[in-house]
Nucleic acid binder design. Structure first.
Lengths: 226, 226
DNA sequence: CGAATGATTGAAATTAGTCAAGCCTTGTGG
DNA sequence: CCACAAGGCTTGACTAATTTCAATCATTCG
């Protein structure tokens, strides 16, 4: 078993792409890798943040927890993504729970390094500002979706977005339908029913976790002004 | 009519509080003040951002617009607040509409200046990162509210938060109930009914736009685990 | 004063959630 | 290799929360 070249791994993360190999070596001293098994928690809602996380590979679920086991999945972070920056900058508790949906490798980066780097590298500061700005806009898009679209419309939007991301009419859910439903702020039952209904209308073809788009124009029309 | 000392005004905005008077003078060259009348639009959803805005005084509504006149109020920005930073950093369109709810003075700050300042002043970069982080966490709190709380609970939470902000049991809505309802993602009708119900239960006393908290413990309990 | 806007109220409709049962995989251990 | 347990998914019937529609009432402010 050979040691992983974590410095090399860091170099390949979008957020550190401007770093030289030497800088990655330096950064490494402030990093802690975490190998997570499926369903393992990385941190709980409420734990105070002293750094943030980069997802090397895998899928990390960020979720809000409510009494009686209810939860709301806010985001699924995948390869190359990061999370926890905002809590780090504010030195506040993480507002969400982070849990691995599958075997994942994430790297914890101590805030200490980031703060120093920002002080010395304005370009890096710009990158972090862009990362946070992206996250903010993504959340606003979610709020728009929750507030102004019906359950079926949200599902249609999701299918189209996934399809665009993979440049394919055929998408395979990397998530259980339970998690997807929570991400879309609906119940699994509603998701199931809505997919069936879309299937009956000939918009999509559903086979387990595979969804194929049959009538893209019609699907788009569902999201347009009435 | 005497010219307003905008440099002095800038100095008093939280986001520029670290600036020296000389720096504020310099900043001023990149600023454009806007006096807005009630209901005046500052920008439309979709306009490309080349800077951001600071609210000197007044109330600016940020809202998502949907077909058929529907809209969702995302945030109300008040004195000392700012908005549009994320769109500026991404050089993307504003995802929301900005409209004055009352006569307001806002100052537009060109991104050009901010970018230069970030390059030369790491402390300022930190400030901007904190501002964005705050906005992100505020949005997550909203998502939590929308997803995991009932309409009545959201109203109770709002009343308590307003009361805390003013350190008083008595709050006076600075918003029309229509705008407040949209902010809480409910309809005005539901807001009206819920307030009445809370009033009937002796939790609050409602008189037009004045709300007085009568039973704070009970109100808190509504937000706790069942 | 009177139009316009905002707020309230009631009744009906609708969406989505809840509860409960059953089904279908999938993986595991006998 | 089969059987069964477990989880994930689907389905149906019912319920509940909130919205919609419509009408009325109040307020404000030209």
């Amino acid at each position: 078993m050979r040691a992983i070249d974590y410095a090399g791994v860091l170099k390949h993360q979008p957020i550190f792409s401007q770093f030289t190999p030497a800088e990655c070596e330096e950064l490494l001293a402030y990093c802690t890798p975490h190998n997570l098994v499926k369903n393992e928690n990385l941190f709980q809602q409420g734990e105070t943040a002293t750094g943030f996380y980069v997802v090397v590979h895998g899928r990390i679920k960020l979720a809000l927890q409510a009494p009686r086991g209810a939860e709301k999945v806010v985001e699924i972070v995948t390869d190359g993504g990061s999370f926890g920056e905002a809590a780090m900058f504010l030195a506040k508790p993480y507002p969400v729970l982070a849990q691995a949906l599958c075997e994942s490798l994430v790297i914890f980066v101590r805030g200490e390094f980031i703060f120093a780097r920002i002080a010395s590298d304005p370009q890096f500061a710009r990158s972090m500002l862009c990362v946070l700005s992206h996250q903010l806009h993504a959340l606003i898009a979610d709020v728009e979706s929750y507030s102004l679209k019906s359950a079926t419309e949200r599902i249609a939007a999701f299918v189209l977005k996934e399809s665009a991301r993979r440049s394919s009419d055929q998408i395979t859910l990397a998530l259980s339908k339970y998690v997807l439903a929570s991400r879309l702020s609906i119940t699994p039952e509603t998701l199931s029913r809505a997919l069936h209904q879309m299937s009956n209308r000939g918009l999509v073809e559903v086979d387990g976790r595979k969804i194929r788009i049959l009538d893209r124009p019609q699907l788009h029309e569902m999201l347009q002004p009435a």
